[in-house]
C-alpha cells in the first residue's frame, strides 16, 4: 500500500513532534548537563526535519500522484483475505496460545492460511498437523522452548 509522499511526511512529522514533546517531559539529571532527553531530542529533530522535507517535496513533485495506491492483489478478495488471515492468525495466536495451547492454536492458524490459498481441506489438515508436530518437536523437545500446553496440560508429554 503506497501513500502519497506528502501523507507519509505528515504522519512522520506528527510522530516527530510527539517525540520532541515527550523528550521535553524527561527529567534533567542533577548536576549533569546531558540527561536522558538529549538524544531523543536530537533524534526527534532529525526525524522532524527529514519528514518536513519529504512533505514539502511530496507537495511539490507529487501533484499527479494518487493519495493512496493499493496493490491490485489487495482488491482481489483472495489477496485481501490472505493478508487478513496472516495478520489475524498472528493476533489469534497471541491472544489464545497461553489458554488453548500451541498444539491446538498452531494447526488452526496453519489451516486458515492454507485455506486462504485454496488448498483442499484434506491436504490442508494433514499438512497443518504434520508441520505443527514437527515444529513442536524441534522447539519443545530439541531446543526446550516451553511452548504452552494450555488446556492440554493434563496430557503434556
Amino acid at each position: 500500500m503506497r501513500f502519497h509522499d506528502a501523507i507519509v511526511g505528515l504522519l512522520l512529522l506528527v510522530g516527530a513532534v510527539a517525540l520532541l514533546l515527550y523528550a521535553r517531559g524527561l527529567p534533567a539529571m542533577p548536576g549533569q548537563q546531558f540527561g536522558p532527553a538529549v538524544f531523543p531530542t536530537l533524534v526527534g529533530a532529525g526525524l522532524g526535519l527529514t519528514a518536513l522535507v519529504l512533505f514539502v517535496r511530496g507537495l511539490a513533485a507529487g501533484r499527479g500522484q494518487r493519495l493512496v495506491e493499493v496493490e491490485p492483489g489487495l482488491f482481489d478478495p483472495r489477496g485481501a483475505t490472505a493478508v487478513a488471515v496472516v495478520l489475524g492468525g498472528g493476533v489469534f495466536y497471541l491472544l489464545t496460545s497461553d489458554w488453548l495451547g500451541f498444539l491446538i492454536v498452531a494447526p488452526i492458524v496453519l489451516l486458515a492460511l492454507f485455506r486462504s490459498q485454496r488448498i483442499g481441506w484434506a491436504a490442508g489438515i494433514a499438512i497443518a498437523i504434520l508441520a505443527t508436530l514437527l515444529i513442536h518437536f524441534v522447539f519443545y523437545k530439541l531446543l526446550r522452548v516451553p511452548l504452552p500446553w494450555g488446556i492440554l496440560t493434563p496430557i503434556a508429554w
Binding site: G90, L110, L147
Partner: peptide
C-alpha cells in the same frame, strides 16, 4: 502456498522462544 504459512508459524515460535512470552510475537 504451503511454505509461507509454515514460515509464519516458525517465525511466531521463534519470536516466542527468545523470552518465552507472547509479547515477542
Amino acid at each position: 502456498s504451503i511454505l509461507m504459512p509454515i514460515i509464519l508459524l516458525f517465525c511466531i515460535v521463534g519470536a516466542f522462544a527468545i523470552n518465552n512470552t507472547v509479547f515477542g510475537v
